[in-house]
Simulated scan of single mutants.
Amino acid sequence: MSEEGLRRIRVIGIGSGDPEHVTLAAVRALRTCEVFFLLDKGARASELTRLRRDLVAEHAGPGHRVVEAADPRRDRSPASPARYQAQVVDWRHRRADLYERLILDELEPGRTGAFLVWGDPALYDSTIDTLEEVTARGAVPFTYDVIPGVSSVSVLAARHRTTLTRLGRPVRIAPGRQVAGAGLAEGEDVAVMLDVGAALTAHRTEGWWMYWGAYVGTPEELLVSGPLDEVADQVLELRAAARERHGWIMDACLLRADGPGPRPAGAGLRGPAG
């Protein structure tokens, strides 16, 4: 089959919540798509679906369709590392089943569909891996491309008026479970993009600085910065209250060895954003 007759999928990064962080490339990509696949994560996260719908309504071309489907559920209760890995692998296989069905049943050959991904799908997201699994199965031929977006950690650093990297030093990007299990290495900087609570529950290390943010880029934005051992409990309380209030939470933090660096934002709480 020629590429012209293939289904086409566009994986579009839409930023972390601020409509102004949707790039011009993303807007142009949205206008080329005829079918938008939105995954429903349940009533408690309905705001996420609404935000995607609003984005499509504002930028998509005439005659487009929106197809919603329930995102496969997975057990998010604490588990051993091996059990957690098995849970995630199983969830990704079930997601691949769903993506395969959506592309086959809802997108005609030669047409273009889209998955809208928070932040930057090329940085920290499973959509690309899921589409690769569907491709490997060979049941539905398609091509896809990826439009990068503004990541939550980029917004986090900008909000705190700092940088992710420092002169001559790398930054490690890791989930909180990994940080909680492996610990914090002397002299490193770590951007935690998932399970932030696990990292903060495990560590109150002196000499480290934390920049934390939740719902960055939205009117509900919360920001805290300060010595890790002094503000970790405050952040954990804020996370719990925010999750209860919204039904979901998206947060990230930058853990920085040796203090805040040359341009600290100053300790304390800021938010919601104005």
Results as ranks from 00 to 15, higher is better:
S2H: 07
S2W: 08
G5H: 15
R7F: 08
R8F: 06
R8S: 08
V11T: 03
V11Q: 14
G13E: 05
E20H: 09
H21W: 04
H21S: 06
A26C: 08
V27H: 01
R28N: 10
R31W: 08
V35L: 05
L39D: 10
D40M: 13
K41A: 15
G42N: 13
R44P: 06
A45F: 05
S46P: 07
S46D: 12
S46W: 11
S46L: 11
E47F: 14
T49F: 06
R50K: 03
L51A: 12
R53A: 09
D54I: 00
L55T: 10
A57M: 02
A57Q: 15
P62D: 08
P62S: 14
V66C: 08
V66S: 02
E68W: 09
A70G: 09
A70E: 14
D71R: 13
P72N: 09
P72S: 09
R74E: 00
D75H: 06
R76P: 02
S77I: 13
S77T: 15
S77P: 09
P78N: 14
P78I: 13
A79Q: 02
S80Y: 06
P81S: 03
A82E: 15
A82V: 13
R83Y: 00
Y84D: 01
Q85C: 00
A86H: 00
A86V: 00
V89D: 00
H93Y: 00
R94S: 00
R94V: 00
R95M: 15
R95F: 13
A96H: 01
L98Q: 14
L98R: 14
Y99E: 04
L104W: 04
L107V: 03
P109K: 03
R111G: 05
R111N: 07
G113C: 01
P121I: 01
A122H: 01
A122P: 06
A122I: 01
T127S: 07
D129C: 00
T130A: 14
L131K: 01
E132T: 01
T135K: 15
T135M: 05
A136C: 07
A136R: 14
A136Y: 02
A139Y: 08
A139R: 13
A139I: 00
V140Q: 05
P141K: 14
Y144W: 08
I147E: 04
G149H: 01
V153P: 13
V153N: 10
V155A: 06
A157D: 07
A158C: 03
A158W: 06
R159Q: 12
R166K: 07
G168K: 05
P170F: 13
V171E: 04
V171Y: 10
I173P: 03
A174Q: 11
P175E: 14
R177T: 14
Q178M: 12
A182M: 11
E186Y: 03
E186R: 12
G187E: 12
E188G: 09
A191G: 15
V196G: 10
A198G: 07
A199H: 04
A199D: 04
W208A: 09
M210S: 04
A214W: 02
G217Y: 02
E221I: 11
L223P: 12
V224I: 12
L228Q: 13
V235G: 07
L236T: 11
A242V: 10
G247V: 15
W248Q: 13
I249E: 08
I249Y: 01
C253W: 11
L254K: 03
D258A: 05
G259H: 06
G259R: 06
G261R: 06
P262R: 12
P262E: 11
P264H: 07
P264G: 10
A265H: 09
A265W: 08
A267W: 04
A267M: 03
G268E: 08
G271W: 12
